[in-house]
């Protein structure tokens, strides 16, 4: 087991390095090939050649890509000094460079943007688990009835409707027509009620999509589990139906759901772009969209790295969790 964890951690590090390298290569080398100059991008439109050259020196953009990559990676762990034009700017670890646009350090920008994203993902997750798993279990138990068909129709709608459509619908109804919510994001520390009010619509929109997927998954898994021999054994022991479903069947049904949940949460950190844009949430996804529009390469790189880390770490956690959930995995 220990060897397994070590091997997995090692794989995580290699994976992240590769992601970094590829992203780095795409964002810093390819623009060069197409004639765009990162240094010019950094400085802005009306800059004289000397300034551009100075920036190029300072950011080390004329170094070979691998050297630049090394500076970048070591900057993440050890911080980095930018020397040029007679000044030394120290960027403390973890250093992801400076925004081309605002000239702020990337890392604080990202950490500012993280809480809304985490709040969105976490809150939506609670809702979709409650709704999706309940709907799935009820559907499985009432297979073929109107309840089942109704739930599955709703789930089908949830899976197929694009999130911006649901988002606009929710906004139109609850914000503009009924005026129930503000949909402005405020910090939790400043105004908990406002925080909740601002997030409730994004939560619902995002949760609707995922609840639909989870309901379908839960229903399918639950139906399969109910056909298992050990469920028959549980009934043969004289357990109440509540124990048969709630304890024996749920235990098995939750295993694949826990697996998928971990991965979905990981992926959501970088992929809630549409939800965040639709509701104007100042999260990572929105930061990414703005950065892409502004060709703000360091921020894009930072977001990609955080998203990748979240996915890879979530996968690792899921695998380790699996060993806790399933004793058969634990021992082999």
């Amino acid at each position: 087991m220990f060897a397994y964890i070590v091997r997995r951690l090692f794989a995580v590090i290699v994976m992240l390095l590769v992601v970094t390298l590829v992203t780095f290569f795409i964002f810093f080398t390819i623009p060069k090939l197409t004639g765009a100059d990162p240094a010019a991008m950094y400085v802005g439109k009306q800059a004289d050649p000397e300034t551009i050259e100075g920036i190029r020196q300072k950011l080390g953009l004329s170094d070979p890509v691998l050297v630049q990559f090394w500076h970048f990676v070591s900057g993440i762990f050890a911080g980095r000094d930018y020397t040029g034009g007679g000044t030394v700017d120290h960027c403390p670890a973890p250093c992801f460079g400076y925004s081309f646009r605002t000239e702020q350090a990337v890392w604080p920008i990202l950490t500012d943007r993280l809480p809304p994203t985490l709040a969105l993902a976490g809150g939506a997750c609670v809702i979709w688990l409650l709704l999706g798993v309940t709907a799935g279990v009820v559907s499985a138990l009432k297979r073929g009835t109107k309840i089942d068909r109704g739930a599955m129709m709703t789930a089908l709608a949830g899976v197929s409707l694009p999130i911006y459509f649901t988002a606009l619908l929710l906004l139109a109804l609850f914000k503009y027509k009924l005026g129930w919510t503000s949909s402005e994001y405020v910090d939790f520390a400043d105004d908990p009620a406002g925080w909740f009010g601002g997030l409730i619509l994004p939560w619902v929109a995002l949760a609707f999509l995922y609840a639909a997927m989870y309901a379908r998954l839960t229903r399918a898994t639950m139906m399969e589990v109910l056909g298992e021999d050990y469920i028959r054994t549980a009934r043969a022991k004289g357990l109440t139906e509540r124990m048969v479903i709630g304890k024996h069947a749920m235990r098995s049904t939750m295993t694949p759901i826990a697996t998928i949940l971990g991965m979905d949460l990981g992926a959501l950190v970088g992929s809630a772009i549409l939800t965040e844009s639709a509701f104007n949430l100042p999260g990572l996804g929105q930061a990414a969209v703005t950065a892409i529009n502004n060709r703000d390469l360091p921020i894009i790189l930072g977001v990609v790295l955080i998203a990748a880390t979240a996915v890879v770490v979530a996968n690792l956690v899921v695998d380790l969790l699996y060993a806790v959930i399933d004793p058969r995995v634990r021992l082999s």
Binding site: D229, Y230, A236, K237, G238, T240, R251, S252, T255
Partner: peptide, 24 residues
């Protein structure tokens, strides 16, 4: 009848591996 199951009448199945819950 449920209360009789397991107490008054009990059953053994063919494949004991699949007839037992793998997680308990």
């Amino acid at each position: 009848v449920r209360r009789l199951r397991g107490r008054e009448m009990a059953m053994i199945f063919q494949d004991p591996l699949s007839a037992m819950h793998p997680y308990f």
